[in-house]
Computed example of a mutant assay.
Amino acid sequence: MKAHLKFAGLATIASLFVAANSAQARELDPSDPTDAVEIMKRTQCGEADNVPAVYHWSGRGYSRVRGEPDSLLFKLQGMNVRQCITVEDAERGKGYRMVSREVMFYVDPETNEILRTWDNPWTGETTNVMHVANDPVNSRASYPYSADGKPYALPNFRQQDDWLFMPFEAPLFYHNVLAGDYQDYVGNKYHAMEIFDFTMRASEVLDSENSTAYPAIAWVRVSDWLPWMKMRGRQGQMVFNATGAKLKSYDDLPAIIKDEIALNYPIYNAPPPVDDSRKNETTWTVFKKMIDEQRAKEKGEEKAGGGH
């Protein structure tokens, strides 16, 4: 009898513990600014502060030239490694900041090998391929309320059954570091459109007991020719289309990415430190630095050789 009473007592305690935890668990409300920030943090970040998260995507890059059929130029294999940290503000509330770095490799569509050089079908010239290697790609802190008190809202957020969709477009039109100082008058500004479409399970991301979520992502980019293609102002543009997802760990990346990172981009297996305050990089800023360094080196060699 005593054993039965003891068992009954333990069962009662266990049921009370489960009931207490269930009472604490709730479904996040996307219309609430605080919960909206938490939903976005789960979409973007790892399981906790200072714990890395990795996104992977793969797809194709096409040319689009007036009067010509679109042409597949190369396949794409990319990843972004990031981490977040909680930030708090007395007026704006509790939010987060994300730091990251990313690579994207251009892959031969026939051999599925990472390209080192590329034969330009329009100019007949062979150019060296400069893969995407942007460090850092950081974001500003996100809070439930802006500095002027405006509540945070998820971009184009909608739910259909257990699926949550969060698409947003980033129209880009700003100073091109590879062009001159008179872009407002003669053009050549950096002009692109990036489209991100996140898809996730509501039962995962809205459950307050989950620390993060693992969405799928689609990425589309329409932009000018890449600078390393050396197109000399030729009419046309690039169209990229890729899909992917947040991964459970860095080890889940395809071998083609991990091998290339280990060989040529070793720092890209981990995110920048959370206090990173450097200016963000793009293909255009990285390419400019590379060309400037090459020219400075050539000028130094010419000077050392006496101009002969």
Rank of each mutant, 00 (worst) to 15 (best):
L226K: 09
S142Y: 14
K297V: 04
A218R: 15
A48F: 08
D148R: 13
D35K: 00
L73I: 13
D108Q: 10
F74E: 05
P151K: 05
R26H: 07
E110C: 00
L164E: 03
T126H: 00
G149Q: 11
A202L: 06
D259P: 03
V177R: 05
G305T: 00
K150Y: 12
A90N: 02
A270G: 12
N80C: 12
K189T: 10
R64E: 12
P171N: 11
T126I: 03
N176P: 05
I217M: 15
R201G: 04
E88W: 03
G59P: 02
D108K: 09
W225V: 00
Y145K: 03
A25M: 12
H308A: 15
L115E: 01
N210S: 06
K299A: 15
T199L: 13
A255R: 11
F198I: 09
V103R: 04
T285H: 01
Y174K: 10
K94W: 00
G9K: 00
E293Y: 03
Y143P: 01
A245F: 15
P69Y: 06
T283Y: 09
I195F: 15
R201W: 10
W163D: 06
V107S: 00
L178D: 07
R140I: 12
P271L: 08
N138L: 05
Y96P: 07
A25Y: 09
K279I: 13
P69D: 05
L73W: 14
D276W: 05
H308Y: 11
G95T: 03
E110N: 15
K41N: 11
A8P: 01
Q24L: 14
N176H: 13
R232E: 14
N120D: 06
L10I: 09
E88D: 10
D162L: 10
D224S: 14
K258C: 07
G305P: 02
Q183Y: 00
Q24I: 13
Q44S: 08
I261M: 04
P167T: 09
R101P: 06
E260C: 04
A141I: 03
D135G: 06
A141N: 03
E169A: 13
S63H: 04
M238D: 06
K75L: 15
V37G: 06
R140N: 14
E27Q: 15
I256D: 01
S31Y: 11
D49Q: 08
W57G: 02
V103A: 06
W57E: 06
L72H: 00
L28D: 07
R232W: 08
R82A: 11
R232I: 00
K41G: 05
E281D: 15
A133Y: 09
E169K: 13
V18T: 08
V107N: 07
G187V: 12
